[in-house]
Design a binder for these strands. Structure first.
Lengths: 161, 161
DNA sequence: GGGGAATAGTTGCGCAAGCAATCATCTTCA
DNA sequence: TGAAGATGATTGCTTGCGCAACTATTCCCC
């Protein structure tokens, strides 16, 4: 816990102005962007953001299928959260479950034709939202900086780690 | 809606590599950081992150009190969410409600002594978390870049807008 | 090869929190 | 002044989702 430090400093020094504002900016910007995006997605296509992301990731996966646990990390959900989300999407016919031949423990979520179609219609909304609320409001170098700074903190860890 | 664009471009052009990775980095990093932070806060002090933020904002407010609606925007909650959170904190004796003399519609949330004490013990945990999961993993200029880029997108809008 | 640990996924449970509707109060302006 | 609209806060309802516990399968290795 205690890494080398001199006697007089407190356990950890308080956040300075820059640190505080970065932290708050991250929290607030995220909340605002995600909320708007989700509201639009929900209003126009009856999809939550995680649901959209599940469909999107499946559509880009080989064979349009992914293991549940990989999908969970992609979609920023816990395994249990993903199970229920896939339940729901399956009820709507947008994905299907498929067992894995070589390992009976794993389950694949597979994008159905209906799911692909739904994704296709929702895509413009999502794209427009990401642009309107994030991308188009930043300079290219700012986008780069965010990706470079936050990317390593995200560490997808799909199946690995 | 449609700002000037030439005929051949699609409604909105798809996200390029840089844009995609910034967007994903934001989503994933946020999720990861907030989850860890919240887990620690909850385990050590039985406080959710929004609850901590409410206490923290109150402690810095003049007279240790804030209007419900202002507090809601600070804490990144909807009014209804804040009402219930304050309900809960009040039940635990960490905050109190106070009516406003000049406007009977507004309610102040006021930090109690117990709330201040709880905040004081939770502060190190929060601080350590923000450092460990965000601040200490970035270069100073990266923090600056995040604050500069995301700050405007957050737009606190405390009571004003 | 069989027993214990690890891994994949699912469920029971509970809670946090958003939306829409409602109530109370204040403002405005005819 | 009094009726319509704004504003602040709360509640009913619903849902998404995380944790912890559980089952099923596979891996490891003695």
């Amino acid at each position: 816990m205690a890494r080398g430090r001199t006697a007089a400093t407190p356990p950890t020094s308080p956040l300075d102005e820059r640190e505080m504002s970065a932290w708050h900016a991250l929290i607030h910007a995220h909340a605002r962007i995600v909320r708007q995006l989700e509201a639009e997605l929900e209003a126009e296509h009856a999809l939550t953001l995680p649901a959209y992301e599940v469909l999107a990731h499946l559509s880009e996966a080989p064979d349009r299928r992914l293991r549940m646990s990989d999908l969970a990390s992609y979609a920023v959900l816990t395994p249990s959260g993903l199970t229920r989300l896939v339940d729901k999407l399956a009820r709507e016919g947008l994905v299907e479950r498929a067992r894995c031949a070589s390992d009976a423990r794993v389950v694949y979520a597979v994008l159905t034709a209906a799911g692909a179609a739904r994704l296709k219609t929702a895509y413009p909304t999502h794209l427009r939202g990401v642009r309107a609320h994030l991308v188009d409001r930043l300079q290219p170098d700012q986008l780069e900086a965010i990706a470079a700074a936050l990317g390593p903190l995200a560490s997808y860890c799909p199946s690995s780690l």
